[in-house]
């Protein structure tokens, strides 16, 4: 068996607004569109994904929040309806997805060996979180690849952003070892926004783009700083600045997804591909990917 590898790492934000705006048949709500900069960016990244040979998507989600260790989906299928508790008017999505349980168990085992508290989730009534569904739908609308969902252990809440970084690094490195041993080709997905301050009111028509803008200029400047570092391939610097960035922008990086993905990928020093940046109800959202293959890596935006 050849050594497994990570063939792509994606930063894939999950505002349910983006699925709502697409009007896929799985979602009950209907929209007139909206947030095209992000949706078109997602469409372009989804096209790139179609050109890549891979076996599974492994996604780290902030919306399966666990306080007792890191949990992995551990049943082969999940079929139900996901209703966003915050935006139920936008997202009521009927999902039917497959899980690569073998890979999940391998990651669980490697993670436990690294001293991290872990748990397999094997309750068939469990409802898969909307972060997983939104990011996976937009990256792979045909849902023709199995996924592994990893919960986000909330070390930022219990300890500090620094502790979150250390644990997310250890988790990423453990997942990488599991992937290598599995012989599989894997796409990693870190599902989250950048700056994460929301407006607490919503326009009567949520997709009214005349009402959409970043929450404040400070959030915007910080987001641009981070994205510029993505472009420059300065991911170690991003890791270093993460505690300050997360605190200043209430960033969704607090869950540890980006650090997890960077650690698993060996902290890339090559430029990220940027597919778009736009605010959603005030939060800052960037679609980006890190392509380890120099032949397919490109300058997108």
């Amino acid at each position: 068996m050849s050594k497994g590898e990570i063939v792509l790492g994606c930063l894939a934000p999950h505002p349910p607004h983006l699925v709502y705006a697409e009007n896929p048949p799985q979602n009950e709500a209907f929209s007139e569109g909206g947030w095209e900069t992000l949706r078109w960016g997602y469409a372009k990244l989804a096209r790139k994904l179609k050109t890549i040979d891979y076996d599974a998507i492994v996604i780290f989600t902030p919306h399966w929040q666990t306080y007792i260790g890191t949990h992995f989906l551990g049943l082969p299928e999940f079929k139900s309806k996901s209703v966003d508790p915050v935006f139920p008017n936008l997202f009521r999505y009927n999902y039917d997805l497959k899980v690569d349980v073998e890979l999940a168990e391998a990651m669980h085992e490697e993670t436990a060996k690294a001293g991290i508290i872990t748990k397999m989730m094997r309750n068939p009534d469990f409802r898969v979180d909307y972060g997983t569904i939104t990011s996976c739908h937009l990256l792979n609308p045909s849902w023709d690849k199995p996924i592994v969902t990893i919960s986000s252990n909330r070390n930022s809440h219990y300890y500090s952003n620094e502790v979150m970084i250390e644990q997310a690094k250890a988790l990423g490195e453990a997942c990488m070892r599991a992937i290598e041993k599995s012989g599989k080709k894997v796409v990693l997905v870190s599902s989250h926004s950048l700056s994460h301050r929301h407006f607490v009111t919503e326009a009567p028509l949520p997709e009214d783009m005349s009402r959409e803008h970043i929450y404040n200029h400070s959030q915007y400047v910080w987001d641009m700083k981070i994205i510029d570092m993505f472009r420059q391939g300065q991911m170690q610097e991003v890791v270093d600045i993460m505690p300050e960035y997360t605190e200043q922008t209430i960033a969704e990086t607090e869950a540890g997804g980006l650090i997890w993905m960077m650690a698993a990928m060996g902290v890339p020093s090559y430029p990220a591909e940027i597919y778009g940046y736009q605010s959603v109800i005030g939060t800052g959202n960037c679609i980006a990917c890190w392509d380890p293959n120099t032949e397919t890596r490109e300058l997108v935006l």
Binding site: T66, V86, K119, M121, N123
Partner: peptide
């Protein structure tokens, strides 16, 4: 937790099977 203001449950018959994120086992 809510983000957009304060949400109030109003569905007359609220039926589902809930599983806790941490204590699913």
């Amino acid at each position: 937790p809510s983000v957009v203001g304060h949400q109030i449950q109003a569905l007359k018959e609220s039926i589902w099977t809930h599983v806790d994120d941490d204590f699913h086992y």
